[in-house]
Design a protein around this nucleic acid. Structure first.
Length: 274
DNA sequence: ATGGTTGGTTACCAA
């Protein structure tokens, strides 16, 4: 069972790339962020034609927007307001699992939370930058949400564009990014509390050693992202402990960054034993 | 220190 997260940076512009991903990797579930469109303009026909009949979307004009495209039916769906805003950053689905996975997990369903955590602006100080405060508050609200809703034996995945590269080798230079929003100690502290809330496991670092550089995003402001390779790992897939033993593999599809008119983020995928 | 690029708008904002 394959599950993908991808900040698509306009789903209307890049729907053909999503279709390509469907054909090349055959994921069961694709979670997108920054769809940047109202639901009425969402290109669902293109995805339904590829066999993704189950689509949960929450979009707005111009900004943010998240969706979940699935070959497996949903048992339930939800849309969450965060920090008192209806700004389309958190949706949830509950999937009915293949029967073998049901047996191993002791659960009929799997909950998936798709997040687009606020980027947080440029200045890492909430006293002078509201956006940074919004980011920290969003993360704190997620920590409380997960702690209240779940316990450590539930089968849950949270994924998305977290806009934070938490580990030393999730950025090209930890030293040079100490004061750059996405890698500041204060953000790492808040995200660390979310990580501890229900004992999450970082499914990518489960496979990639901590001392190995690992990125999912490269700025548009570099002439040649391969040559400069100043990347950051902003996109994450976290799983609860019951799922850890069922992790089969992962892929970071960095070739999608080389396409014509790419997103600045690439798809990140995990595979669970069916 | 500064600027570099992109997408959605339709004048700049957010990333």
């Amino acid at each position: 069972m394959r599950i993908v997260t991808w900040n698509i940076n306009s789903v209307r512009l890049r729907a053909p790339m999503v279709v390509q991903l469907m054909r090349e990797e055959s994921p069961d579930v694709i979670c997108l962020q920054e769809t940047k469109t109202l639901d009425e303009f969402f290109p669902h026909e293109a995805f339904e034609a590829e066999g993704y009949a189950h689509i949960h979307i929450n979009g707005m004009k111009s900004y943010n927007g998240v969706c979940i495209l699935s070959r497996l039916p949903f048992e339930g769906t939800d849309i969450h307001s965060r920090v008192g805003k209806d700004d389309c950053r958190h949706i949830e689905v509950s999937l009915r699992l293949p029967s073998a996975l049901q047996t191993r997990l002791g659960s009929d369903t799997l909950d998936i939370h798709n997040l687009y955590i606020p980027a947080g602006g440029d200045e890492p100080d909430r006293k002078i930058n509201e956006k940074f405060g919004h980011k920290l508050d969003f993360i704190d609200e997620m920590t409380e949400f997960f702690s209240k809703k779940y316990n450590k034996k539930d089968a849950v995945i949270t994924l998305g564009d977290f806009n934070i590269a938490p580990r030393e080798h999730d950025v090209w230079s930890s030293k040079q990014l100490q004061k750059v929003v996405s890698h500041t100690p204060i953000e790492l502290e808040h995200l660390g509390r979310m990580y501890d809330s229900i004992g999450w496991e970082d499914a990518i670092r489960h496979f990639v050693p901590d001392e190995e550089k690992c990125y999912s995003w490269w700025s548009y402001r570099n002439r040649d992202f391969r040559k400069s390779n100043r990347g950051r790992r902003l996109d994450h897939i976290w799983v609860t402990q019951p799922l850890v033993d069922n992790l089969k593999g992962y892929k970071i599809l960095d070739s999608y960054r080389e396409m014509t008119k790419p997103s600045d983020h690439v798809p990140v995928m995990i595979e669970l034993q069916k």
